[in-house]
């Protein structure tokens, strides 16, 4: 990937992120922060590739720590976001039930 292509990706992704969030209601701020926390867990993929290329014990140790931390980011981010959003579902369902 050439530098200029990467630069385009940087720019467009930044605008996308800004746009996606700009109209979010306050009630979803915490779940959304948690959700975006999950999304940067994609670092797991990079950590896997890095550990996959590790040769010396030092590289392997650093790589291992990287994958371990990234896996924690992914799983923890998913579980906490899911738990928060789960509550919104139950409240909406209750509301539907309450109005029937």
């Amino acid at each position: 990937m050439t530098g200029i292509v990467a630069l385009y990706i940087f720019m467009l992704a930044a605008f996308t992120g800004y746009e996606v969030i700009s109209r979010v209601p306050v009630i979803l701020h915490t779940p959304l922060m948690s959700g975006s926390n999950f999304v940067h867990g994609i670092v797991l993929v990079g950590a896997m590739v890095a550990l996959g290329a590790a040769q010396t014990p030092l590289e392997k140790t650093i790589g291992f720590i990287g994958v371990l931390l990234a896996a924690g980011n992914v799983v923890g981010g998913y579980v906490s976001t899911e738990r928060m959003l789960e509550m919104f579902k139950s409240s909406q369902d209750k509301r539907k039930g309450g109005r029937a």
Partner: peptide
Amino acid sequence: ANAAMIIAGMVVGAAGTLL
């Protein structure tokens, strides 16, 4: 040279800044 990391990371970077 991992496009998925660049996109996801940057989206979160921008969204997180706004938040």
